[in-house]
Nucleic acid binder design. Sequence first.
DNA 1: ACCTGAACACCGTTCAAGT
DNA 2: ACCTGAACACCGTTCAAGT
Lengths: 165, 165
Amino acid sequence: MSRRDEVIDAAERILEAEGFEALTMRRLGAELSMRAPSLYKHVAGKPEVEAALQERALRGIGAALAAAGPTLGDLAAAYRAWSLAHPRLYELSTRRPLQRDCLASGVEAAAAAPLLAAVGGDQAAARALWGLAHGLVDLELAGRFPPDADLSAAWSAAVHAFGGG
Amino acid sequence: MSRRDEVIDAAERILEAEGFEALTMRRLGAELSMRAPSLYKHVAGKPEVEAALQERALRGIGAALAAAGPTLGDLAAAYRAWSLAHPRLYELSTRRPLQRDCLASGVEAAAAAPLLAAVGGDQAAARALWGLAHGLVDLELAGRFPPDADLSAAWSAAVHAFGGG
DNA sequence: ACCTGAACACCGTTCAAGT
DNA sequence: ACCTGAACACCGTTCAAGT
Protein backbone atom coordinates (compact mmCIF):
# COMPACT_ATOMS: atom_id res chain seq x y z
CA MET A 1 0.00 0.00 0.00
CA SER A 2 1.38 3.35 -1.00
CA ARG A 3 1.96 6.05 1.56
CA ARG A 4 -0.75 8.06 -0.15
CA ASP A 5 -3.28 5.29 0.41
CA GLU A 6 -2.29 5.20 4.06
CA VAL A 7 -3.07 8.90 4.27
CA ILE A 8 -6.52 8.41 2.74
CA ASP A 9 -7.19 5.43 5.02
CA ALA A 10 -6.26 7.46 8.06
CA ALA A 11 -8.47 10.31 6.87
CA GLU A 12 -11.43 7.97 6.54
CA ARG A 13 -10.86 6.58 10.03
CA ILE A 14 -10.68 10.02 11.60
CA LEU A 15 -13.67 11.29 9.65
CA GLU A 16 -16.00 8.47 10.70
CA ALA A 17 -14.70 8.12 14.24
CA GLU A 18 -14.37 11.77 15.21
CA GLY A 19 -16.35 13.79 12.68
CA PHE A 20 -15.60 16.29 9.97
CA GLU A 21 -14.24 19.00 12.26
CA ALA A 22 -11.61 16.58 13.59
CA LEU A 23 -10.25 15.94 10.11
CA THR A 24 -7.41 18.47 10.13
CA MET A 25 -4.03 18.18 8.51
CA ARG A 26 -2.35 18.26 11.91
CA ARG A 27 -4.62 15.51 13.27
CA LEU A 28 -4.10 13.49 10.10
CA GLY A 29 -0.35 13.82 10.41
CA ALA A 30 -0.47 12.72 14.04
CA GLU A 31 -2.47 9.62 13.07
CA LEU A 32 0.46 8.67 10.81
CA SER A 33 3.13 9.78 13.29
CA MET A 34 4.33 12.68 11.23
CA ARG A 35 3.95 16.45 11.22
CA ALA A 36 1.33 18.11 9.05
CA PRO A 37 3.81 19.60 6.53
CA SER A 38 5.09 16.09 5.71
CA LEU A 39 1.66 15.15 4.36
CA TYR A 40 2.27 17.47 1.42
CA LYS A 41 4.85 15.06 0.05
CA HIS A 42 2.03 12.51 -0.43
CA VAL A 43 -1.03 14.60 -1.24
CA ALA A 44 -1.38 18.01 -2.81
CA GLY A 45 -3.50 19.32 0.05
CA LYS A 46 -6.70 18.83 1.97
CA PRO A 47 -8.96 19.15 -1.10
CA GLU A 48 -7.22 16.15 -2.65
CA VAL A 49 -7.81 14.12 0.51
CA GLU A 50 -11.49 15.03 0.39
CA ALA A 51 -11.76 14.18 -3.30
CA ALA A 52 -10.24 10.76 -2.61
CA LEU A 53 -12.80 10.19 0.15
CA GLN A 54 -15.57 11.20 -2.25
CA GLU A 55 -14.38 8.53 -4.65
CA ARG A 56 -14.37 5.92 -1.89
CA ALA A 57 -17.93 6.83 -0.98
CA LEU A 58 -19.01 6.53 -4.59
CA ARG A 59 -17.41 3.10 -4.91
CA GLY A 60 -18.88 1.97 -1.60
CA ILE A 61 -22.44 3.00 -2.29
CA GLY A 62 -22.19 1.72 -5.86
CA ALA A 63 -21.11 -1.69 -4.62
CA ALA A 64 -23.86 -1.74 -1.99
CA LEU A 65 -26.51 -0.95 -4.60
CA ALA A 66 -25.12 -3.49 -7.05
CA ALA A 67 -25.31 -6.16 -4.35
CA ALA A 68 -28.88 -5.28 -3.36
CA GLY A 69 -31.99 -7.09 -4.53
CA PRO A 70 -33.74 -5.97 -7.69
CA THR A 71 -36.83 -4.21 -6.32
CA LEU A 72 -37.08 -0.51 -5.58
CA GLY A 73 -37.59 -1.36 -1.93
CA ASP A 74 -34.35 -3.37 -1.87
CA LEU A 75 -32.42 -0.56 -3.50
CA ALA A 76 -33.87 2.05 -1.16
CA ALA A 77 -33.01 -0.07 1.87
CA ALA A 78 -29.45 -0.59 0.62
CA TYR A 79 -28.99 3.12 -0.06
CA ARG A 80 -30.21 4.07 3.40
CA ALA A 81 -28.24 1.33 5.15
CA TRP A 82 -24.94 2.27 3.51
CA SER A 83 -25.43 5.95 4.26
CA LEU A 84 -26.29 5.40 7.91
CA ALA A 85 -23.28 3.10 8.25
CA HIS A 86 -20.92 5.74 6.80
CA PRO A 87 -22.67 9.00 7.65
CA ARG A 88 -19.70 11.42 7.54
CA LEU A 89 -18.30 9.86 4.39
CA TYR A 90 -21.73 10.10 2.80
CA GLU A 91 -22.08 13.76 3.74
CA LEU A 92 -18.59 14.58 2.54
CA SER A 93 -19.31 12.95 -0.80
CA THR A 94 -22.63 14.69 -1.47
CA ARG A 95 -22.25 18.18 -0.05
CA ARG A 96 -19.62 19.50 -2.37
CA PRO A 97 -19.10 19.33 -6.11
CA LEU A 98 -17.62 16.14 -7.50
CA GLN A 99 -14.02 16.67 -8.56
CA ARG A 100 -14.65 14.79 -11.77
CA ASP A 101 -11.11 15.30 -13.04
CA CYS A 102 -9.74 13.57 -9.91
CA LEU A 103 -12.16 10.68 -10.33
CA ALA A 104 -11.35 7.34 -11.95
CA SER A 105 -13.47 7.09 -15.06
CA GLY A 106 -16.66 5.06 -14.76
CA VAL A 107 -16.97 5.38 -10.98
CA GLU A 108 -19.75 7.94 -11.13
CA ALA A 109 -21.69 6.00 -13.76
CA ALA A 110 -21.19 2.70 -11.91
CA ALA A 111 -22.70 4.16 -8.74
CA ALA A 112 -25.74 5.37 -10.64
CA ALA A 113 -26.24 2.23 -12.75
CA PRO A 114 -28.35 0.17 -10.31
CA LEU A 115 -30.85 3.02 -9.86
CA LEU A 116 -31.00 3.59 -13.59
CA ALA A 117 -31.63 -0.08 -14.23
CA ALA A 118 -34.40 -0.18 -11.61
CA VAL A 119 -36.42 2.41 -13.54
CA GLY A 120 -35.86 0.82 -16.93
CA GLY A 121 -33.16 3.21 -18.10
CA ASP A 122 -35.21 6.40 -17.74
CA GLN A 123 -32.64 9.08 -16.81
CA ALA A 124 -35.18 11.59 -15.50
CA ALA A 125 -36.86 8.96 -13.33
CA ALA A 126 -33.48 7.74 -12.08
CA ARG A 127 -32.51 11.27 -11.03
CA ALA A 128 -35.84 11.79 -9.28
CA LEU A 129 -35.31 8.50 -7.46
CA TRP A 130 -31.78 9.50 -6.49
CA GLY A 131 -33.07 12.85 -5.26
CA LEU A 132 -35.65 11.08 -3.15
CA ALA A 133 -33.20 8.66 -1.56
CA HIS A 134 -30.59 11.36 -1.04
CA GLY A 135 -33.07 13.82 0.41
CA LEU A 136 -34.45 11.39 2.96
CA VAL A 137 -30.95 10.26 3.98
CA ASP A 138 -29.55 13.78 4.11
CA LEU A 139 -32.37 15.15 6.26
CA GLU A 140 -32.06 12.15 8.58
CA LEU A 141 -28.28 12.56 8.93
CA ALA A 142 -28.64 16.30 9.49
CA GLY A 143 -31.14 15.73 12.29
CA ARG A 144 -33.77 17.73 10.47
CA PHE A 145 -36.71 15.40 11.04
CA PRO A 146 -38.52 15.74 14.38
CA PRO A 147 -37.10 13.24 16.87
CA ASP A 148 -40.32 11.21 16.89
CA ALA A 149 -40.74 11.05 13.09
CA ASP A 150 -41.52 7.60 11.67
CA LEU A 151 -38.89 7.44 8.95
CA SER A 152 -39.68 3.86 7.97
CA ALA A 153 -43.17 5.04 7.07
CA ALA A 154 -41.71 7.91 5.06
CA TRP A 155 -39.46 5.50 3.13
CA SER A 156 -42.41 3.19 2.48
CA ALA A 157 -44.45 6.09 1.14
CA ALA A 158 -41.51 7.11 -1.03
CA VAL A 159 -41.00 3.65 -2.51
CA HIS A 160 -44.75 3.31 -3.02
CA ALA A 161 -44.91 6.62 -4.93
CA PHE A 162 -42.36 5.29 -7.39
CA GLY A 163 -44.40 2.19 -7.99
CA GLY A 164 -42.39 -0.08 -5.71
CA GLY A 165 -43.87 -2.66 -3.37
CA MET B 1 -34.09 47.49 14.52
CA SER B 2 -32.00 46.02 17.32
CA ARG B 3 -28.26 45.74 17.01
CA ARG B 4 -28.69 41.98 17.11
CA ASP B 5 -30.95 42.09 14.06
CA GLU B 6 -28.35 44.17 12.26
CA VAL B 7 -25.79 41.46 12.98
CA ILE B 8 -28.05 38.77 11.53
CA ASP B 9 -28.85 40.93 8.50
CA ALA B 10 -25.17 41.47 7.84
CA ALA B 11 -24.52 37.75 8.23
CA GLU B 12 -27.18 36.95 5.64
CA ARG B 13 -25.72 39.48 3.21
CA ILE B 14 -22.21 38.08 3.57
CA LEU B 15 -23.38 34.49 3.33
CA GLU B 16 -25.30 34.94 0.08
CA ALA B 17 -22.88 37.37 -1.52
CA GLU B 18 -19.57 35.75 -0.60
CA GLY B 19 -20.32 32.21 0.51
CA PHE B 20 -20.14 30.22 3.70
CA GLU B 21 -16.36 30.39 4.10
CA ALA B 22 -16.51 34.20 4.05
CA LEU B 23 -18.89 34.26 7.00
CA THR B 24 -16.33 34.73 9.77
CA MET B 25 -16.71 36.73 12.96
CA ARG B 26 -13.97 39.10 11.83
CA ARG B 27 -15.61 39.65 8.44
CA LEU B 28 -18.99 40.08 10.14
CA GLY B 29 -17.58 42.65 12.52
CA ALA B 30 -15.99 44.56 9.64
CA GLU B 31 -19.35 44.66 7.83
CA LEU B 32 -20.73 46.47 10.90
CA SER B 33 -17.61 48.61 11.42
CA MET B 34 -16.61 46.93 14.65
CA ARG B 35 -14.03 44.40 15.77
CA ALA B 36 -14.98 40.75 16.10
CA PRO B 37 -14.94 40.66 19.92
CA SER B 38 -17.61 43.37 20.03
CA LEU B 39 -20.08 41.03 18.33
CA TYR B 40 -20.19 38.98 21.50
CA LYS B 41 -22.13 41.78 23.21
CA HIS B 42 -24.99 41.13 20.75
CA VAL B 43 -24.86 37.41 20.04
CA ALA B 44 -23.57 34.52 22.09
CA GLY B 45 -21.31 33.30 19.29
CA LYS B 46 -21.25 32.04 15.75
CA PRO B 47 -23.64 29.13 16.41
CA GLU B 48 -26.33 31.61 17.47
CA VAL B 49 -25.84 33.58 14.25
CA GLU B 50 -26.25 30.38 12.25
CA ALA B 51 -29.34 29.35 14.18
CA ALA B 52 -30.91 32.74 13.47
CA LEU B 53 -30.17 32.29 9.77
CA GLN B 54 -31.76 28.84 9.91
CA GLU B 55 -34.92 30.41 11.28
CA ARG B 56 -34.94 33.02 8.50
CA ALA B 57 -34.64 30.29 5.90
CA LEU B 58 -37.51 28.38 7.46
CA ARG B 59 -39.73 31.47 7.45
CA GLY B 60 -38.74 32.32 3.89
CA ILE B 61 -39.39 28.95 2.40
CA GLY B 62 -42.59 28.56 4.42
CA ALA B 63 -43.90 31.85 3.06
CA ALA B 64 -42.93 30.89 -0.49
CA LEU B 65 -44.76 27.58 -0.21
CA ALA B 66 -47.82 29.19 1.37
CA ALA B 67 -47.98 31.67 -1.52
CA ALA B 68 -47.64 28.98 -4.18
CA GLY B 69 -50.50 27.44 -6.11
CA PRO B 70 -52.24 24.36 -4.78
CA THR B 71 -50.90 21.61 -7.06
CA LEU B 72 -47.86 19.49 -6.35
CA GLY B 73 -46.20 20.98 -9.41
CA ASP B 74 -46.74 24.50 -8.06
CA LEU B 75 -45.32 23.56 -4.67
CA ALA B 76 -42.32 21.83 -6.20
CA ALA B 77 -41.59 24.83 -8.42
CA ALA B 78 -41.86 27.21 -5.45
CA TYR B 79 -39.56 25.03 -3.35
CA ARG B 80 -36.93 24.87 -6.06
CA ALA B 81 -37.21 28.57 -6.93
CA TRP B 82 -36.76 29.72 -3.33
CA SER B 83 -33.79 27.43 -2.79
CA LEU B 84 -32.00 28.50 -5.97
CA ALA B 85 -32.62 32.15 -5.07
CA HIS B 86 -31.08 31.68 -1.59
CA PRO B 87 -28.68 28.79 -2.09
CA ARG B 88 -26.27 29.39 0.81
CA LEU B 89 -29.07 30.16 3.23
CA TYR B 90 -30.86 26.99 2.12
CA GLU B 91 -27.74 24.89 2.62
CA LEU B 92 -27.03 26.43 5.99
CA SER B 93 -30.56 25.66 7.13
CA THR B 94 -30.64 22.03 6.04
CA ARG B 95 -27.15 20.71 6.63
CA ARG B 96 -27.05 20.93 10.37
CA PRO B 97 -29.50 20.01 13.13
CA LEU B 98 -32.27 22.49 13.83
CA GLN B 99 -31.64 24.32 17.08
CA ARG B 100 -35.26 23.83 18.09
CA ASP B 101 -34.79 25.55 21.44
CA CYS B 102 -33.60 28.71 19.65
CA LEU B 103 -36.56 28.60 17.25
CA ALA B 104 -39.77 30.60 17.62
CA SER B 105 -42.55 28.10 18.17
CA GLY B 106 -44.61 27.20 15.14
CA VAL B 107 -41.99 28.16 12.57
CA GLU B 108 -41.00 24.58 11.80
CA ALA B 109 -44.62 23.44 11.54
CA ALA B 110 -45.60 26.46 9.41
CA ALA B 111 -42.87 25.67 6.89
CA ALA B 112 -44.08 22.09 6.60
CA ALA B 113 -47.81 22.85 6.49
CA PRO B 114 -48.22 23.49 2.72
CA LEU B 115 -46.56 20.18 1.84
CA LEU B 116 -48.64 18.35 4.41
CA ALA B 117 -51.84 19.89 3.06
CA ALA B 118 -50.90 18.95 -0.51
CA VAL B 119 -50.85 15.24 0.38
CA GLY B 120 -54.06 15.34 2.40
CA GLY B 121 -52.44 15.39 5.83
CA ASP B 122 -50.50 12.14 5.40
CA GLN B 123 -47.31 12.69 7.48
CA ALA B 124 -45.35 9.86 5.87
CA ALA B 125 -46.22 11.06 2.36
CA ALA B 126 -45.38 14.65 3.31
CA ARG B 127 -41.93 13.60 4.55
CA ALA B 128 -41.29 11.57 1.41
CA LEU B 129 -42.28 14.59 -0.65
CA TRP B 130 -40.02 16.84 1.41
CA GLY B 131 -37.18 14.37 0.99
CA LEU B 132 -37.71 14.37 -2.75
CA ALA B 133 -37.74 18.17 -3.08
CA HIS B 134 -34.81 18.57 -0.70
CA GLY B 135 -32.76 15.86 -2.39
CA LEU B 136 -33.16 17.31 -5.87
CA VAL B 137 -32.38 20.82 -4.65
CA ASP B 138 -29.44 19.74 -2.51
CA LEU B 139 -27.79 17.73 -5.28
CA GLU B 140 -28.30 20.59 -7.71
CA LEU B 141 -26.81 23.15 -5.30
CA ALA B 142 -23.90 20.84 -4.53
CA GLY B 143 -23.09 20.46 -8.21
CA ARG B 144 -23.57 16.71 -8.02
CA PHE B 145 -25.60 16.24 -11.18
CA PRO B 146 -23.66 15.99 -14.44
CA PRO B 147 -23.41 19.43 -16.07
CA ASP B 148 -25.68 18.41 -18.93
CA ALA B 149 -28.39 16.79 -16.78
CA ASP B 150 -31.96 17.81 -17.63
CA LEU B 151 -33.19 18.75 -14.18
CA SER B 152 -36.56 19.99 -15.36
CA ALA B 153 -37.24 16.49 -16.63
CA ALA B 154 -36.15 15.05 -13.29
CA TRP B 155 -38.53 17.37 -11.43
CA SER B 156 -41.36 16.45 -13.78
CA ALA B 157 -40.72 12.78 -13.19
CA ALA B 158 -40.66 13.43 -9.45
CA VAL B 159 -43.94 15.32 -9.43
CA HIS B 160 -45.49 12.69 -11.68
CA ALA B 161 -44.46 9.88 -9.31
CA PHE B 162 -46.34 11.58 -6.50
CA GLY B 163 -49.48 11.80 -8.59
CA GLY B 164 -49.05 15.43 -9.59
CA GLY B 165 -49.75 16.83 -13.07
C1' DA C 1 -24.05 49.88 27.50
C1' DC C 2 -20.84 49.30 23.98
C1' DC C 3 -16.36 48.87 21.88
C1' DT C 4 -11.21 47.96 21.89
C1' DG C 5 -6.45 45.57 21.69
C1' DA C 6 -3.99 41.73 23.17
C1' DA C 7 -3.95 37.13 23.73
C1' DC C 8 -5.00 31.94 23.40
C1' DA C 9 -5.44 27.77 21.05
C1' DC C 10 -6.35 26.54 16.84
C1' DC C 11 -6.44 26.23 11.09
C1' DG C 12 -4.06 25.11 5.92
C1' DT C 13 -0.01 25.82 3.70
C1' DT C 14 4.94 27.16 2.36
C1' DC C 15 9.70 26.68 2.67
C1' DA C 16 14.45 26.24 3.90
C1' DA C 17 16.87 22.82 6.13
C1' DG C 18 18.07 18.29 7.57
C1' DT C 19 18.68 12.79 6.76
C1' DA D 1 12.89 10.37 -1.07
C1' DC D 2 11.02 11.70 3.15
C1' DC D 3 10.51 14.37 7.32
C1' DT D 4 11.22 18.55 10.36
C1' DG D 5 10.67 23.28 12.73
C1' DA D 6 9.58 27.87 11.97
C1' DA D 7 6.72 30.90 9.95
C1' DC D 8 2.56 33.17 7.57
C1' DA D 9 -2.05 34.52 7.28
C1' DC D 10 -5.93 33.08 9.02
C1' DC D 11 -9.95 31.09 12.62
C1' DG D 12 -13.53 31.55 17.18
C1' DT D 13 -13.41 33.16 21.54
C1' DT D 14 -12.04 35.35 26.16
C1' DC D 15 -10.93 39.12 28.91
C1' DA D 16 -9.16 43.20 31.07
C1' DA D 17 -9.47 47.79 29.93
C1' DG D 18 -11.41 51.91 28.13
C1' DT D 19 -15.68 55.42 27.08
